[in-house]
Design a binder for these strands. Structure first.
Lengths: 351, 351
DNA sequence: CTGTTAGCGCCTTCAG
DNA sequence: CTGAAGGCGCTAACAG
């Protein structure tokens, strides 16, 4: 069963353009032409070459083509956590747009770790990817700007341009936090917990700022109306469930909680149920993202809807446009919207 | 603002090992040694080279390395739909294991389209990826076997080896379907709808077979006890919601429904609510996968739990082992388990 | 229309 | 320990 060549190698070397040429009795450049300029090759020569290709099992060598200057067919994408339903939908939007352009997608989860992000960025840059879509783990963008300047286009995903010389697709998080707070304030809540994630995440800071402004506008004293509670990593349902203990320990107890995403809200619902606290009667809960399952939770989740799939598609659009002649960096901005369901209700005084 | 070189190019050519050598006053092979055999280079020479690298902004050229014979740092993965929460978790497991091995991951969704799958496979093979993890869109595996024989290792994900000369990570779907049916039969249900997806998907056929066997074992006439209903693509909550109309139109009406995944079950819950049909009092619903949100649905979803993340990790493990000397193809098999919650209940006769 | 040639950037001999 | 040379597979020029 040994190969004739005597190569002990695991993986036999693939047939090259040269073997095809030999098998078809033509030169290598003719084979190359069949591949890249079929029109300029005589029909019967072409057919002979094509037969030779399937005969020797020829497969193009992407590395050699790229070395020769062909544009890369790979784009990269770094998200905080690809398993999170929000990012999973964003990623699918990216993938679909890239596929239309004949590109493949490398994905990576940073788990909000800058070191991991840099590691991925370096590997992708070495591969010479066509560009990288990044939901940054930190708000320091200089690393990304330098990467872009060195020749690998970078598009920010779910992050504002923030003065950086990059394309960006953003969602107005200040607005999102604002409408969440406005909703609760209109229902009479005057003490609201804000569940945020790892410190320093830009989108969460912005949402908190939106909440703060809404409270100020309503004439409230933020220091007593707003209770900050961090959710430790990893941000899973179980962890968010456990955080409920902290929420309930605050005195005076908040009557409503704004979660930084729907997974955390799911954990809150579970934890509150565990404590025998009725939602929304004794506690209003509001999520963020409006993932698929939000509508069918018990109770159905009031949340802030973000355009997830479209976010991804738009980002990929920008990336693909980076190569075009007169390209200018631009920011696309989406506005999130409140979706009122059953997890929020008017404050019952004396509850 | 024009570059001095007068290059109108979008993307300046990156610095090569040669420019580093020139800047450091050494030869290219010394630079190469600094990169690949740092130990054999004199300390001060090495430092000089390293300074030169950062000075000229050197980045390794992956294409050139690969052409020279370096192993690829990329693995591919083809799933039916990466945005589906089941596959998103599988994919995260793959990603984590690959990252430990210093590999990147290309993902692709086939949407159960063989043409799309083949397209992705071809592109990945041309790139010379280290291997490809595939949840096949069809049960014809010859294409994959040939790919593997040509030198690109293939690992089947959530699919049995089925006699193919490939590694595989499988979950016992017949068993899964069986326990779902056993549960409903024990509750007294005698007319059960099975919601399946696109025809020909192996895992769904197997689950149906499990259901069939359970019915037979219980002494039922399958032709009257089992009602097959297909859910058209794309398999979204909305589509599954609409399918409820078909379920209810069947005469005599089924009293329980087994869904092929939790997303479809979610749609069923929504559609049944729309029709004013109480779950589980008037209709029992059972899902598949046990995704994160299943526990918190209204009502909490009875479902079949699959080891999603572990499935991915195990598959990546097998792929990484393909290069090892005495490698033999193997199958790893997981067993799914029933998780009883609130969406199933005893049959109320005369309901 | 087809063949010849010269590298793309890197790494691995083999001499010094 | 360092330098010089060849070639991985492919394509863009140019010659025929």
């Amino acid at each position: 069963m040994r190969q004739d060549k005597g190569e002990s190698a695991q993986r036999a070397r693939r047939a090259s353009i040269r073997q095809v040429a030999a098998a078809a009795g033509v030169s290598t450049s003719t084979v190359s032409n069949v591949l890249n300029n079929p029109d300029i090759v005589a029909t019967d020569t072409r057919r002979r070459v094509e037969d030779a290709m399937s005969e020797v099992g020829y497969v193009r060598n992407g590395a050699a083509r790229q070395l020769r200057g062909a544009p890369s067919t790979i784009a990269g994408c770094l998200l905080l956590d690809t398993a999170n339903p929000f990012f999973a939908e964003v990623s699918r939007g990216i993938e679909d747009r890239l596929t239309e352009a004949g590109c493949l997608l490398i994905v990576g989860s940073t788990d909000v770790r800058v070191a991991q992000e840099n590691n991925y960025l370096r590997m992708m840059e070495e591969l010479g990817v066509r560009g990288i879509l990044v939901n940054p783990a930190s708000s320091r963008l200089d690393q990304l700007v330098r990467l872009s300047a060195r020749g690998t286009p970078v598009v920010l995903v779910d992050h504002p341009q923030a003065g950086a010389d990059l394309c960006a697709v953003a969602v107005d998080d200040v607005h999102g936090g604002g409408v969440a707070a406005d909703h609760l304030l209109a229902l009479g809540h005057r003490r609201i917990a804000f569940l945020s994630g790892r410190a320093g995440v830009r989108s969460l800071r912005d949402r908190r700022e939106g909440v703060r402004r809404a409270m100020t506008k309503a004439g409230l004293d933020v220091s007593s109306a707003l209770v900050d509670i961090p959710v430790p990593e990893p941000c899973t349902v179980e962890v968010a469930d456990a955080v409920v203990d902290q929420v309930l320990a605050v005195s005076p107890r908040p009557t409503a909680v704004i979660c930084f995403n729907d997974v955390v809200a799911l954990g809150q619902l579970r934890g509150l149920r565990r404590h025998g606290i009725a939602v929304p009667e004794q506690m209003s809960v509001i999520g963020y993202d409006d993932v698929q399952f939000a509508e069918q939770l018990s109770p159905a989740l009031t949340t802030i809807r973000q355009p997830k799939y479209q976010l991804g598609r738009a980002a990929a659009d920008l990336l693909l446009a980076e190569n075009l002649p007169g390209h200018l960096h631009q920011e696309i901005r989406f506005t999130p919207e409140l979706v009122v369901r059953a997890s929020t209700a008017p404050l019952v005084t004396g509850g």
